[in-house]
């Protein structure tokens, strides 16, 4: 009975952002399918992917929104920031402009998500080290200054891709455990599945308390 879509205790919502062509869709594809998509067409609006992972013995379903990097879709993509528990902010280590735009992506992410949203910086295309345009140290420093988690990854080889998604989830889970992320808050980006979980309440914001027969 616990088969299929309900075989997990939490849903975490992620959003992937960054300039066009940095490899957002490829990262998602690598993570969900464990394959590299060569000749990946540009994303129109928003795409969507899921995978179930395990953190501290808990099954967690990641619901990942992959947004289009093109400026023209910004009006559409902005609406997906709200209610994201994790934001993966991606640049391309071989194209400096994509790194330079990070501050504007970060501003968007900070303004449009809630304060507890975990922001993870990803320097993609680490397999193209010879064409590197942004050093590891520089990006690492940027991440530290802004309180971001950081890794260099390769959607092509798969290097560190798993870690980036999992580390984000671990951090979110930790925030839940230590109480800094309030699941009852609207748009926490986390949903708790009542059937399996220990906490028994639907944390999507709707209270079921009124229907409780014992409340009289």
């Amino acid at each position: 009975m616990a088969a299929g879509p309900y075989n997990y205790s939490y849903i975490f919502k992620y959003i992937i952002i960054g300039d066009m062509g940095v490899g957002k869709s490829c990262l998602l594809h690598q993570f969900t399918e464990k394959k590299f998509m060569a000749d990946c067409p540009h994303t129109i609006g928003v795409e969507f992917g899921t995978r179930i992972i395990e953190v501290a013995g808990q099954k967690i379903k990641l619901q990942i929104w992959d947004t289009a990097g093109q400026e023209r879709f910004r009006a559409v993509t902005r609406s997906y920031y709200r209610g994201a528990a994790g934001a993966l902010m991606v640049y391309d280590i071989t194209r400096r402009t994509t790194y330079n735009h990070l501050s504007s992506w970060l501003t968007d992410a900070r303004n449009l998500t809630n304060p507890n949203t975990v922001i993870f910086l990803i320097g993609n295309k680490s397999d193209l080290d010879a064409q590197r345009d942004v050093t590891y140290d520089e990006a690492k420093q940027f991440a530290e200054e802004n309180g971001l988690m950081f890794l260099e990854c390769s959607a092509k080889t798969g290097e560190n891709v798993e870690d980036a998604f999992l580390d984000t989830a671990k951090k979110i889970y930790k925030n839940i455990q230590d109480g800094s992320l309030d699941l009852n808050a609207a748009e926490s980006g986390v949903q708790h599945k009542p059937s399996n979980g220990p906490r028994g309440a639907n944390l999507g914001g709707e209270s079921s308390g009124n229907k409780d027969p014992c409340s009289c």
Partner: peptide, 17 residues
């Protein structure tokens, strides 16, 4: 409504894609 139309946009993107 914005809150629900983001799902609409996702579906439309799906078709366009």
């Amino acid at each position: 409504r914005d809150a629900e139309d983001k799902y609409l946009h996702m579906v439309v993107s799906h078709f366009l894609q």
